[in-house]
């Protein structure tokens, strides 16, 4: 008697939400959505919804934490209680603290921190709805919020994940695939520098699959990068377009 199991990928390589294996979810970035921050961005990444606000560079508080040679970058990743299917405790979890650190480390190489010694740059990330790849969406949206805050950067940071589901590599992992899959590998990338700022992996993959994953990740990051640039274009074009004389 064979066990009945829901499959996540059909025989002709279509995933449970209708995507091909190397297809990303629909991504919509919006810049400058908040009034009381220096820079902000909102992203809808499939069903994942994240709001990012950036404050700074501003005087570092408490003062003893200020660094004398560069700005202190701090990320605060937080999931709303209603962001997941089961209610999440509002207390900061181990996972949130870890993701805050990882996101900060993925963004800091892109920022010219040495230009603002003794100041701090705070990145507040609020996950409103989570459906996988929240760290990737957070990093991608946060780099747009940093741009909106007018913080000098080397490049935008684009991020995406590759997973292994039912023996196949899939780009842009959603929650269902993440939970059922064998591995998850997020990457953050600065395309014009060809520099990786974050690479994590859990689960098990072979060396060949790793090489393939890297190719897939690069391709995905470039697609995200394109969306980011489009969002910047859309937001700032309005400010500089020539007004027709009445």
């Amino acid at each position: 008697m064979e066990e009945l199991k829901t499959r996540l990928i059909s025989d002709d390589g279509i995933r449970c939400d209708g995507r091909r294996l190397d297809e990303i979810r629909p991504i919509k970035f919006q810049i400058g959505v908040l009034n009381n921050t220096d820079g902000s961005a909102y992203v809808e990444w499939g069903r994942t919804k994240i709001l990012v606000g950036v404050m700074g560079p501003r005087e570092s508080h408490p003062k003893h934490l200020a660094l004398s040679d560069k700005a202190r970058v701090e990320a605060y990743y937080r999931m709303a209680s209603f962001s997941v299917e089961e209610w999440k405790s509002p207390a900061p979890s181990r996972r949130e603290v870890e993701l805050s650190k990882v996101i900060r480390e993925a963004l800091e190489p892109a920022i010219f921190v040495e230009l603002f010694p003794r100041t701090s740059i705070d990145i507040f990330i609020e996950v409103l709805q989570a459906d996988g790849s929240t760290r990737c969406a957070s990093i991608s949206a946060a780099s747009l919020a940093l741009v909106d805050a007018g913080i000098p950067m080397r490049d935008l940071v684009a991020s995406i994940a590759v997973g292994k589901v039912e023996g196949k590599l899939v780009l842009d992992v959603q929650d269902k695939e993440d939970k059922a899959g064998d591995s998850d590998m997020p990457m953050a990338y600065m395309p014009s520098k060809n520099a990786v700022t974050l690479l994590q992996m859990d689960g098990q993959i072979t060396h060949d699959e790793f090489i393939q994953s890297m190719e897939l990740l690069k391709k995905g990051c470039l697609e995200v990068y394109k969306k980011q640039k489009e969002a910047i274009e859309a937001h700032f074009k309005g400010a500089i377009s020539n007004v027709e004389e009445a």
Binding site: D155, L156, M190, P191, K229, I232, F236
Partner: peptide, 10 residues
């Protein structure tokens, strides 16, 4: 001239 650019643009 006066083209909109973003961080990382060559």
């Amino acid at each position: 001239a006066r083209q909109l650019v973003s961080p990382g643009t060559l």
